[in-house]
């Protein structure tokens, strides 16, 4: 009785050694080992990152030979591009005087700079390829048919925004390749009705110069990623609302 409020070293140590870790774990992961159906369900819908998935899917959905994971790989590449792009932003200044030097610094001065730039560059090419393959998969499996018509439309917008993301990124190194590719692209824009105006708005001037660089930069690191992220969110949400991934009629 008198011991009740007394400090008990053994008890305290065992509390911190054995109970706290369990309490900590239980406060983060709120379900037991996923060997029962209940825990398998909880694992999915008590997890922020997994709750976009249903608890159960048709057997058809898990066949890799159906979707070839192309939509998923596109999403993964977009995530990798966001991470590597964020890191590149630490080293890159969107100025016609500094940009090219920054690229050289990435190559020669920054640890893993080349690797970082390569990941971002090849990831971007990869994403253009996989988004196209994903579109082909959706077409050839007839997955755009009702009720998924509008998700296809959102998909087409995602295709266009992926192309623009890649195109705006192309200018940023400010080398000959970048400069002339964008000059060619901007010339194409000038063939449209009111083309000169369009080109002016795109470039923030009449030629590819500082005005164009800052516009492409802001579009590349802020506007287009924002739009793309939102649309991917809607796209995946709609996959669920349209009854999960398509499959042959039951």
């Amino acid at each position: 009785m008198e011991n009740k409020n007394k400090f008990d070293l053994r008890e305290t140590l065992s509390y911190f050694a054995f109970e706290v870790p369990v309490k900590l774990y239980r406060s983060i992961i709120r379900h037991g080992y996923p060997d029962s159906e209940k825990n398998k369900s909880l694992l999915i819908f008590t997890n922020f990152f997994l709750h976009i998935l249903p608890v159960k899917v048709r057997k058809h959905t898990v066949k890799v030979r159906y979707s070839y994971c192309m939509g998923g790989i596109t999403l993964l590449l977009f995530i990798i591009l966001t991470i590597t792009g964020g890191l590149l932003m630490f080293y890159y200044v969107p100025s016609t005087e500094k940009a090219y030097q920054n690229m050289k610094d990435l190559e020669f001065a920054v640890s893993f700079g080349v690797f970082l730039r390569n990941m971002h560059r090849w990831g971007a090419h990869g994403m253009v390829a996989t988004v196209f393959l994903h579109m082909c998969r959706v077409f050839y499996t007839g997955a755009y048919k009702p009720p998924r018509e509008f998700n296809w439309v959102i998909g087409v917008i995602l295709l266009v925004s992926t192309l623009f993301l890649s195109f705006t990124g192309y200018l940023l190194p400010w080398d000959q390749l970048a400069f002339w590719a964008i000059t060619v692209g901007a010339t194409i824009a000038s063939y449209a009705p009111m083309g000169d105006l369009q080109r002016f708005v795109l470039l923030g001037g009449n030629t590819v110069d500082q005005g164009a660089l800052i516009r492409f930069y802001v579009a590349h690191v802020f506007l287009l990623p924002l739009v793309t992220t939102l649309l991917i969110g809607v796209h995946l949400w709609r996959v669920r609302k349209d009854g999960g991934m398509s499959g042959p009629p039951l």
């Binding site: 590449l77 990798i80 016609t96 090219y100 690229m103 050289k104 190559e107 080349v114 690797f115 730039r117 390569n118 990941m119 971002h120 560059r121 090849w122 990831g123 990869g126 190194p173 400010w174 080398d175 000959q176 390749l177 970048a178 400069f179 030629t207 590819v208």
Partner: peptide, 18 residues
């Protein structure tokens, strides 16, 4: 992607020359 990035370098030409 990591392997490709280890073995192939992204192109960088001379500085832009209008």
């Amino acid at each position: 992607l990591v392997l490709v990035s280890l073995f192939f370098n992204a192109p960088l030409e001379e500085i832009a020359n209008p």
